[in-house]
Design a protein around this nucleic acid. Structure first.
Lengths: 212, 212
DNA sequence: AACCTCATGGTTCATTTGTACTATGCGCGA
DNA sequence: TCGCGCATAGTACAAATGAACCATGAGGTT
């Protein structure tokens, strides 16, 4: 049972060519793992999955076109049995939570040493979850934590862009009192002292992004 | 001259095992490039350089212990002829400027396709700079731009942590009027409407960081 | 010597922000 | 139906912020 007769079939999904190469090479020296496909985007990943269904999908979260967590959800909608192991740079709590909620079986950071990545793939192939202590720790810190509503995130995104409450109100067609109320909720929920700290906390957690 | 008799010797410096593997594999299929060393930190990189001086050092900027730009400067202090090609994820203007100022010959992003990375190594080996248009564009945007003083960055870092001008003043043992003046300078120099936007701009440019 | 930037400290004033409440209507789940 | 969270809107008030100024001393460069 711990030694599968068949090699574990892995589909690698990452938009960085260097990372795809690295993972493929890494698994070539493993006798019980076989890379059966590689993809540089979610769309390609779906096609590769259909072509040759893998035992484990090893994927990054940041990808062009479709966000990684959406890709996980979509993949599992199409193939409910698909087992996904996330391998990414992002330590933001929000990424972790969303990836696992979307159905990922594990979450590893890209600086993980070879043996642990291999072990992670083996675990996931055996239907075991693979969430290292550091990540699990981040996760437990999120439990019981108020999450921001969609509207609050919308408002906080504008705060991050330097908008005043009045400007936010105009942008969203609401009263500036309401805008202020949303900002205050953000402060309370995030435990921030002011709007600036609220923004930095939200960025750290992955709730809002700076690029556009 | 364009076809060197000897293969180009490359030292790979990256704290991600996956990336080291990927690059090594990528260069194995190139007949004119030879990976002569790999390192996961600046310290290791110095040792590897001494052991087998490469023609090109291909390195990441984010590394444990020593910041990449400092590592470049130190390496070129020890070996003035060293040619460094940066391969990183960071697009922040500040990273680019500092890396080139520290003596890097080129700056590539990690999602660069194989052929371009190979071409970059070849160019740097031939003492040519390798700065793709996208990066060069970022660079030109920085010219003539006021840069923040050390004190201003110090202040802005505290602003990012949600500190008020008064708290910043206490922390830095200065008057709250002075703290406010520094914040105002930041707003002016960064072209921000308020302290929150100043922080997000500074983060995007790589002037301040959120982790500690 | 003249000039410049930087860090420092100051004043004044209008605007913004954050705190602390109240309140209404909607939708959802117990 | 009752309660809860959410979005909405409001009031009142104290504190913080940002704009627009001025000024000085230390440390450089030209």
């Amino acid at each position: 049972m711990t030694e599968p007769a068949q090699r574990i079939k892995v589909l690698i999904v990452d938009d960085h060519p260097v990372v795809r190469f690295g993972l493929r090479t890494m698994f070539e020296s493993e006798t019980n793992i076989l890379v059966t496909g590689m993809a540089g985007s979610a769309r390609e990943a779906f096609a590769e999955f259909d072509r040759e269904p893998p035992d484990v999908v090893l994927m990054d979260l940041r990808m062009p076109e479709m966000q990684g967590t959406d890709a996980i959800a979509e993949l599992r909608r199409l193939h409910p049995g698909a087992r996904v192991l996330v391998l990414t740079n992002y330590e933001g709590d929000e990424y972790i939570v969303r990836a696992l909620q979307a159905g990922a079986m594990g979450y590893l950071l890209k600086n993980t040493p070879q043996e642990e990545i291999v072990r992670g793939v083996e675990m996931v192939a055996n239907n075991q979850r693979c969430v290292p202590p550091f990540i699990a720790q981040r996760l437990v810190e999120t439990v019981g934590r108020d999450e921001l509503s969609q509207r609050e995130i919308e408002v906080l995104t504008l705060v991050a862009a330097g908008k005043s409450n009045k400007e936010i109100a105009q942008r969203l067609f609401i009263s500036d009192k309401t805008a202020r109320n949303h900002v205050v909720s953000c402060l309370t929920k995030l435990g921030a002292d002011d709007r600036t700290e609220a923004v930095t906390i939200a960025i750290r957690r992955g709730l809002i992004h700076l690029d556009e």
